[in-house]
Nucleic acid binder design. Sequence first.
DNA 1: TAAATTTTTGGCCATGCGGTCAGAAATTGA
DNA 2: TCAATTTCTGACCGCATGGCCAAAAATTTA
Lengths: 224, 224
Amino acid sequence: MRSEIDPSGQPGNGESTSTEPERSLIEKVRRAQIIEAAIDVIAVRGFAKASMAQIAERAGVSKGVISYHFAGKNELIERTVEQIYDRLGTFVASRLAAEGETGTAAWLRIYIGSLAEHMADHRTQLIALGEIFTQFRTENGELRYGIASSESLFAHLEEVFRAGQQRGELRAFDVRVMAVSLQAAIDDMFAYWSVHPDHDLAAHARELTDLFWHATRAEGRADS
Amino acid sequence: MRSEIDPSGQPGNGESTSTEPERSLIEKVRRAQIIEAAIDVIAVRGFAKASMAQIAERAGVSKGVISYHFAGKNELIERTVEQIYDRLGTFVASRLAAEGETGTAAWLRIYIGSLAEHMADHRTQLIALGEIFTQFRTENGELRYGIASSESLFAHLEEVFRAGQQRGELRAFDVRVMAVSLQAAIDDMFAYWSVHPDHDLAAHARELTDLFWHATRAEGRADS
DNA sequence: TAAATTTTTGGCCATGCGGTCAGAAATTGA
DNA sequence: TCAATTTCTGACCGCATGGCCAAAAATTTA
């Protein structure tokens, strides 16, 4: 998986700037139903085998219905990511907001922990998201949700680290490398859990918090 | 990218146990030529668009030639990975062997550093490998070179960490989580460099060494 | 109720894929 | 030199895909 979320709580710089198109009830229900089917099929059969026909069958409608309610497969996938993504982001942001400003150690614990907690309760979504992030490509062949699109996430993590450094709480290190590595470790925590369902995700999250606290804290500091 | 290499220098548990089939000169030349074309096409156009037709065109032969010299696309891809992989493994193993036993700090530096050094000189191969590792699937839909196939690599890293812990050099931590996280951070170092060619790979490798040394070392120890 | 509109169906299309094959071309060996 | 063998070509196959559309069905509006 790649590019979790921007936990800053911003409304998201997505395409939803101008007025949302009005949707009839049927429209909304069908779109939700198709997205749910897409998540299931992608999680179970893998992104590559999640054809329009498969998704339509799962949703119990004919293939044309998807084309009627979505501009195409790309839009369906992007709306699917958007939905999962938004819920996760809301959850993490609320957890972080509930804590106030209590330093980097607490921030790491809550950030990593809340991501893990939410995903533990939404395994199917996590697996679908992992499939999409690693396989969904734009027409020119680039990963649609690849490292290149994680820039705003990296920037946010960098800011957290830089603030900790300025407070004297963290040692000197390259914040970009730390941000990329933290994200990588989180991504692979989920990827590992995807493959090993019995793996203890919460414990992994706690270990990861320790790992990055030791990696970032200033010399001579005790654990928090 | 996933599943770098087993740096233990073992001959590799691959399929090459029994006697290698004899190959004519033409056979060897053609296979090398086709593998090279495959690397180029995969690196430039992406794995998804690297069809037999594309690879054949790049190699300057007709499509049938590939089928003549390889059992199918799967064999071509696997031989391609094998080639890149073997060279990288040889390089890293020799660097590690040249150092002898000098503790975990040195091991981390040489392991991460030699991977980065070799890949810096073989960017096209690295990108092709990244494409293959993240997209090449078995017939049942699993990633051919995914986390599930990294078990032996994780086991090896765990052993390095466990040895350091027993020597009192490293603090207590979950070696599996540390192994998965180190591999993730290395993978993403390469992935980041794939997307940002001007990124300083050697400096990133040094930062990563620092990161994991701080994350793993026993309390009260100075940097080495 | 009747017309207008929205929604759904299921078949059809062009495209690109990996793989196969008969026969041509090139190479080898006697 | 000339047959045997290896290597190569380019057309062709079956298959699955995403998307399209005319017509049927369902729903809303007048």
